[in-house]
Computed example of a mutant assay.
Amino acid sequence: MSRLVNSLKGVSSRRLRQEFPDLVRHYWRAQRLWSGSYFAGSAGGAPLSLVKQYIEQQNRPL
């Protein structure tokens, strides 16, 4: 699983930096866009519409 996640992070980081050059200037010190950690969870077979509704109803940081 970790190899898949790291691959997705690498590809998405390269694509985002190509599409949004300002990201390169913003993250130049860290030289990476994503942290080294990741989270994988399960929704217990709930329909995606219910999971989406749950996420949308969560409080957002200010």
Rank of each mutant, 00 (worst) to 15 (best):
R29P: 02
L23C: 05
S12E: 05
G45D: 08
N6C: 03
H26R: 15
L62P: 10
K9A: 14
L4Q: 14
R15F: 02
S2L: 06
N6E: 08
H26T: 13
L33C: 03
G10Y: 06
Q18V: 02
G44R: 12
V24F: 00
N59D: 10
Q31A: 14
S42H: 03
A40P: 01
V11K: 15
Q31H: 13
L33T: 01
Q53E: 08
V24E: 11
Q53S: 07
P21C: 07
R29I: 09
R29V: 08
A30V: 07
A46S: 12
R29D: 13
P47M: 06
R29F: 12
L33S: 02
G41N: 05
L33N: 02
Y38M: 11
L4M: 11
G41S: 14
A40H: 10
K9G: 09
V11P: 02
I55N: 02
L50Q: 15
M1L: 12
Y27E: 02
G36N: 14
W34Y: 06
K52Q: 05
V5N: 08
K52H: 03
S12M: 07
S2F: 08
Y38A: 13
Q53C: 01
P61S: 08
S37E: 15
P21M: 05
I55T: 03
E19N: 11
P21V: 04
I55G: 01
L8D: 01
P61K: 07
W34S: 01
V11L: 13
H26F: 13
L23Y: 04
R3D: 15
L16S: 02
Q18Y: 04
L48S: 12
N6R: 09
G44Q: 11
G44I: 10
A43Q: 06
S12K: 05
W34V: 01
G41I: 03
W28H: 13
R3A: 15
S13D: 05
P47I: 07
R60M: 14
K52G: 00
N59T: 08
V51T: 04
R14A: 14
V51F: 07
W34Q: 01
G44T: 10
Q53H: 08
R60P: 06
Q58I: 00
R32Q: 07
L62W: 06
A30M: 10
G45M: 08
G10I: 01
L48M: 12
S35N: 09
G10D: 06
S7I: 04
S37H: 09
S12P: 00
V5Y: 07
L62Q: 11
V5C: 09
V51K: 01
F20Q: 10
P21H: 08
W34G: 00
Q31Y: 05
W28P: 00
R15Q: 09
A46R: 13
L4A: 14
Q18M: 05
Y27C: 02
Q57M: 04
K52N: 04
A43G: 09
W34E: 00
M1S: 09
R60T: 13
Y54P: 00
Q58W: 00
Q58T: 02
V5T: 12
D22V: 03
N59Y: 03
N6I: 00
V24D: 05
G44C: 11
Y38W: 14
G36P: 06
R17H: 02
Q18T: 07
S12T: 15
L16V: 01
Q53T: 04
K9S: 12
V11Q: 14
E19K: 14
L16T: 01
L50T: 11
P61D: 07
Y27H: 15
S7R: 12
S49L: 05
K9W: 09
